[in-house]
Computed example of a mutant assay.
Amino acid sequence: MSAQVSDGSFETEVLRSDLPVLIDFWAPWCGPCRAMGPVVDELAEEFSGQLKVLKMNVDENQATPSKYGIRAIPTLILFKDGEVLEQVTGAVSKSSIKEMITSKLG
């Protein structure tokens, strides 16, 4: 399972993380976000120990999505050492996300 992150914990959980971080920006009312939820949870299990997978509710946390220019959800951003490596918006296949992760972290 992926864990939740907030504006308040973002710096510690994401920017200062020893592991790379995949963060899913989502909202409960968003159909594509709900569809992506199980995929993101599966990725969290598959990359356990190699990648931290977190979710941020954009309705409850508005500062961080605004800072990273998120205008549509779901948006997934891959961070490493506090820097954005890759970003993808919309409901995409699990294989596409895995390829993004392995190509950037491989």
Rank of each mutant, 00 (worst) to 15 (best):
1 M>N: 10
2 S>T: 05
2 S>P: 14
4 Q>H: 12
10 F>S: 05
10 F>Y: 08
12 T>W: 05
13 E>N: 08
13 E>Y: 02
13 E>C: 08
14 V>W: 01
15 L>F: 06
16 R>V: 09
17 S>P: 08
18 D>P: 08
21 V>Q: 07
24 D>T: 06
24 D>M: 06
25 F>G: 01
25 F>W: 07
26 W>F: 15
27 A>L: 09
29 W>P: 11
29 W>T: 08
30 C>A: 11
31 G>F: 13
31 G>V: 14
33 C>H: 00
34 R>T: 03
35 A>V: 06
35 A>N: 07
37 G>N: 07
37 G>P: 01
39 V>K: 10
40 V>Y: 00
40 V>P: 00
41 D>Q: 15
41 D>F: 11
42 E>Q: 15
42 E>I: 13
43 L>N: 01
43 L>V: 10
45 E>N: 10
46 E>G: 07
46 E>I: 07
48 S>L: 10
51 L>V: 12
51 L>T: 00
53 V>P: 00
53 V>H: 08
54 L>N: 08
54 L>K: 06
54 L>F: 05
55 K>M: 15
57 N>L: 13
60 E>W: 10
60 E>C: 10
61 N>S: 07
62 Q>K: 14
65 P>W: 14
65 P>K: 11
67 K>H: 07
67 K>M: 12
70 I>Y: 05
70 I>T: 01
70 I>Q: 09
70 I>E: 02
75 T>W: 02
77 I>N: 00
78 L>P: 04
82 G>I: 08
82 G>R: 03
82 G>P: 05
83 E>V: 01
83 E>P: 02
83 E>L: 09
84 V>C: 08
85 L>T: 00
86 E>T: 12
87 Q>W: 13
88 V>C: 03
89 T>W: 07
91 A>M: 15
91 A>T: 10
92 V>E: 02
93 S>M: 13
94 K>M: 10
97 I>W: 12
97 I>E: 00
98 K>I: 15
99 E>G: 05
100 M>Q: 09
101 I>S: 03
102 T>K: 13
103 S>A: 14
103 S>P: 09
104 K>E: 01
105 L>H: 02
105 L>W: 09
106 G>P: 01
106 G>V: 03
106 G>H: 04
